[in-house]
């Protein structure tokens, strides 16, 4: 009898620790996704000039797709306006939105002057998301706060928002995209996105 109780206690504590372990492991993978992405970015910045725009685009394409949930982001940024889009339009938006996201990374991360990312803390949100708080440390300047919000997608985690010093990229984009859809319509939105991609590739 005593033996049994002992066994149960061991079993229960084992299960408990296993579930605790599983939890830290799954949140560590959210952290891993962010850190992998950040190190990919730094690597591209370091050889940014040598790679050129096209080279940076190729390298970052994989890095962005493997760390972001671009189709979910594309759905969030059009908000309620998204309900008015046809299947075909939604696909078109997905396609150009992904291109724009990668292109703007490729355009903006072109050189390196000693920056590094530092992990600060990790937080669970009410609805099962994870926020990774980190700092971009810039030599001779105040660090910039970067908060990454991730959601689970299948068995892995994906970034759905980046908040830099309190400015939410997703909120910013959502205001822009919904305003343009309301005021000018779908075709104008796609045309504007394509124009941005074009400009990024030229500079």
């Amino acid at each position: 009898m005593l033996m049994n109780i002992k066994l149960i206690v061991i079993l229960v504590s084992y299960l408990l620790s296993a579930s605790v372990f599983a939890e830290t492991e799954s949140s560590a993978s959210a952290k891993q996704i962010v850190e992998k992405f950040q190190s990919d970015l730094i690597a591209v910045m370091k050889e940014g000039q040598k790679l050129g725009y096209a080279g940076r685009y190729e390298k970052l394409k994989e890095a962005v797709i493997n760390s972001h949930d671009l189709s979910k982001i594309a759905r969030i940024v059009v908000g309620k306006e998204g309900e008015k889009l046809s299947e075909e339009q939604q696909q078109k938006l997905d396609e150009v939105f992904s291109k724009l996201s990668i292109a703007s990374y490729a355009h903006n991360f072109k050189d390196y002057s000693g920056e590094s990312f530092v992990f600060v803390s990790e937080e669970q949100t009410a609805r099962g998301g994870v926020v990774i708080h980190s700092h971009l440390v810039i030599p001779d300047d105040k660090p910039v706060k970067f908060d990454y919000m991730l959601k689970e997608k299948g068995t892995s985690w994906r970034i759905i928002n980046i908040i830099a010093n309190g400015v939410s990229d997703l909120a910013l984009k959502r205001s822009e995209y919904t305003t343009i859809l309301q005021r000018e319509g779908f075709d104008a939105l796609i045309a504007k996105i394509n124009e941005k991609i074009d400009n990024y590739s030229k500079q």
Binding site: N108, S168, D169, L170
Partner: peptide, 16 residues
């Protein structure tokens, strides 16, 4: 996703 997280030069500028 991208704009805010740009490289330091433009990022710093946008924040400032």
């Amino acid at each position: 996703m991208v704009i805010r997280s740009s490289q330091t030069g433009s990022l710093k500028n946008s924040l400032q």
